[in-house]
Design a protein around this nucleic acid. Structure first.
Lengths: 192, 192
DNA sequence: CATAGTCGTTACGCACCGTTACGACAATTG
DNA sequence: CAATTGTCGTAACGGTGCGTAACGACTATG
């Protein structure tokens, strides 16, 4: 593997980081979150552990990068004249994206990691989730145009929880109709 | 530690299993899910690893037992004439129960474990969750008396996800008012 | 041509994993 | 009153992964 990767001296070698991210993705796909270790990634990428730790100090960093890298080319929120349908589309696409068993495994690994590593928990809450939650809040805001920020935030948590619950139970193969029903409940007009 | 625990010969020694469960609980409380290892439990309990593995073949088994053991004396679903308030009470009590940082840590560890161990995932879905979900379904059924089983099930998932999302983000210290709002949304009459 | 930064290799000490072998022990069985 | 049976603690095993350190090879920079 390292044969096809000539050294670049004192400049960072982009081929290395690509090889590492590729290896991480492949391992997640083939062996799931269970087989994901820094050792395995290093070996598969033909890289050294110190190199990985230089750019991704934490397993969480690497997992987030793998996730991010694929999300860019996969899930984009639409904006039609039916915001309710936009949210449904986005959710279905996201779950589909997760079920490719690459990003989904990465996310699962990240959440699991956060349960035993305070640093990973911080990364999850302060770096990973906020931009994603704001996307959801925006879509919810278009649906419930006259709801308060707290009201939107609460429903975003409901949406998040519903998605997590499915992902973490390996039950993301849900009928689109049922997802739609759940979203209808989450976006039901507040009764008061 | 083993001084105060005379051997009982060919009969199982109840003091041993109690010591192990106590040790597991203490470690979860003091060090969280991160510091929870079979080695640490064995050492603290003054027991041998083989003894632990004899009765709890999996870490998930031990975690579930720790959780179960405390739940019995903590959270009981009420049944007043206001089923909506019953569900709120139950949820608040459950979150309070989790935030004691014993059962909550155990649950978090169990979910994390399930992300990398198929056996733990099976145990979680087939043994741990069903009785708890049926409790929720029952309460939801009293609120939405004329809803279909699928409808109830979907809302149970929403409730579950909302709770998990809070637990797994270390955000179970929520205002009772907000919990009530979320439950109001989950139990909103279906619009169709 | 010296410097600085990147990279792979190797190896370290540490923590856990899940299992095995063994001997001490006491309740039981006959 | 032995022999049996199952429980228990101890010690140790090979294996895996962790995160870090030391080293030498390399090349763009200045």
């Amino acid at each position: 593997m390292s044969k096809a990767r000539p050294p670049t001296g004192s400049r960072r070698n982009p081929r290395v980081s690509e090889a590492i991210l590729d290896a991480a993705r492949e391992i997640l796909t083939e062996r799931g979150a269970a087989g994901f270790s820094m050792e395995a990634v290093a070996q598969r990428a033909g890289a050294g552990k110190p190199t990985i730790y230089r750019w991704w100090p934490t397993r969480a960093d690497l997992l987030m990068d793998v996730y991010e890298r694929e999300k860019l080319v996969s899930v984009v929120p639409a904006q039609s004249d039916d915001p309710n349908d936009d949210l449904l589309r986005y959710t279905v696409n996201l779950w589909q994206f997760w079920s490719t068993h690459t990003a989904g495994q990465a996310f699962r690994g990240l959440i699991a990691e956060a349960q035993s590593s305070p640093a990973a928990m911080t990364a999850l809450r302060d770096r990973f989730l906020p931009p994603r939650l704001s996307t959801i809040r925006e879509m919810l805001g278009r649906i419930l145009s006259q709801a308060s920020a707290e009201e939107i935030d609460l429903r975003a948590r409901l949406w998040l929880g519903f998605s997590w619950q499915a992902l973490l139970q390996d039950q993301i193969l849900m009928e689109e109709v049922d997802i739609g029903r759940a979203i209808a409940i989450i976006t039901c007009p507040s009764g008061a």
